Computed example of a mutant assay.
Amino acid sequence: MAAAALKLSPYSDPRQQCFQTEFKPTKGRTFLSSRNPLLPLPKPHRYSFKCCCLPSSSSSSTNSITPFQYYSFLDEPFRGSRVLTNEELEKLKALESFVYLQELESGSLWVRVMRTEDLDLTVRLLALSFAESMFMSLQYETLLRFFVNQYLLERRASMPHAVTLVGFYREQGGKRGEELAGTVEVCFDKRGATASPPTPTAPNSSPYICNMTVTKELRRRGIGWHLLKASEELISRMTSSKEVYLHCRMIDEAPFNMYIKAGYNVIQTDGVLILLTLQRRKYLMCKKLPVSNSFPESCISESGEEINV
């Protein structure tokens, strides 16, 4: 009996994971992809930087974010036997040291690259959000987790050309401790581009943000906004290209407004024929990032009114 292979083609939505689905008969199970405290690195390098976005009014309370322990992606089994160039090694070290910190009104948020111990939580979040966006029964969650897990492992093998970021949140005065607040995927170049990108198709040689989702109980706190800003900060340090692309479904008004506020412009729109494939029409949006030769040592706060997502 033919098995059903789930084809996942991601695009960006700061409130929920938005995989496109396509069921195809196959002869076997295959996965078809589309696209705690941290110590500083012992030795700086040209890609090393701090990404601290803490308001000037933040205080050293018990809920303040502390540095993280040093972590090496070179020790992870996902790399396989692929030999990295010197440039790739430098970029991988930059990903190890990357952390984006932000004090929100309701608590603290920090964003870093997903590690091995984060995989199960991230898979669960994406599977639940995917089921929600597609109005699927939670009885399919186990199957969804399997495919999402395979997808994330495949994408991690492309590091440092693409990366999955995870955001952790600690509520002020809360006793629950830190919890996974959201995730987002960032593709930096052609080697990190997905195999079957959604339409309208973005240039595969340009940075691309996708698969953004926020934990349902933590939405409307600005977490989606800061996942987006963390992605842009990392892109500005990891690539020379300053044009970044993302997709937004036409029905998602709040994310669309957030992207417009963040400086993204619609450059192409899905045609109506895409509806025949049971997919939502999408905008392809693009933003030119400002040129930044070095990240400022002082902490920077976000200016202007923030859209809560």
Rank of each mutant, 00 (worst) to 15 (best):
G80Q: 01
N63C: 14
L104A: 12
Q69Y: 14
F98A: 08
E103A: 09
T66H: 09
E90A: 12
Y140Q: 14
P55H: 04
A94N: 05
P55T: 04
R79Q: 05
S48K: 04
L119K: 10
E88N: 05
F130N: 08
F98L: 09
E88I: 02
L84T: 03
E90F: 06
R29Q: 14
K43Y: 03
S133M: 12
S58N: 01
L128V: 00
P42A: 07
C51V: 07
R112L: 09
E132H: 11
N63T: 13
S137D: 15
F98Y: 15
H45F: 05
Y140K: 13
S57P: 03
Y140S: 15
N36S: 13
T30N: 10
T66K: 14
Q102G: 02
L92P: 04
I65H: 00
N36G: 13
S106W: 05
L104E: 12
G107P: 11
T62I: 14
W110S: 08
P44T: 03
S58H: 02
D120A: 15
G107D: 11
K43M: 05
L54H: 01
L32P: 03
P55V: 03
R82H: 07
L32I: 15
I65T: 10
S34M: 09
M114L: 11
P42Q: 08
P55S: 08
A94S: 15
R82T: 12
Y140P: 06
S81C: 05
S64N: 09
E76N: 04
S59Y: 01
F130K: 00
L38T: 11
L39Q: 12
P40A: 10
S64F: 09
Y140R: 12
Y47I: 01
S106A: 15
L128N: 08
V123T: 15
C51F: 08
F68W: 07
R124F: 08
F31W: 08
L126E: 08
E96L: 04
Y71L: 06
Y100E: 12
Y140N: 13
G107N: 13
D75M: 02
R29A: 14
L125F: 03
Y100C: 12
P37A: 14
K50N: 14
P77C: 01
L41D: 05
P42N: 10
F31C: 06
S48C: 05
K91G: 06
L128R: 09
L128E: 13
E87M: 02
L125N: 06
D75P: 00
S81I: 02
S106P: 00
S61P: 00
L138A: 02
L54E: 02
P55Y: 03
Q102Y: 03
R46M: 06
E90R: 04
L92M: 14
E88L: 02
S133K: 13
G80N: 00
L128D: 10
V83A: 11
C51G: 08
F73S: 04
S72D: 13
L89H: 11
F98G: 07
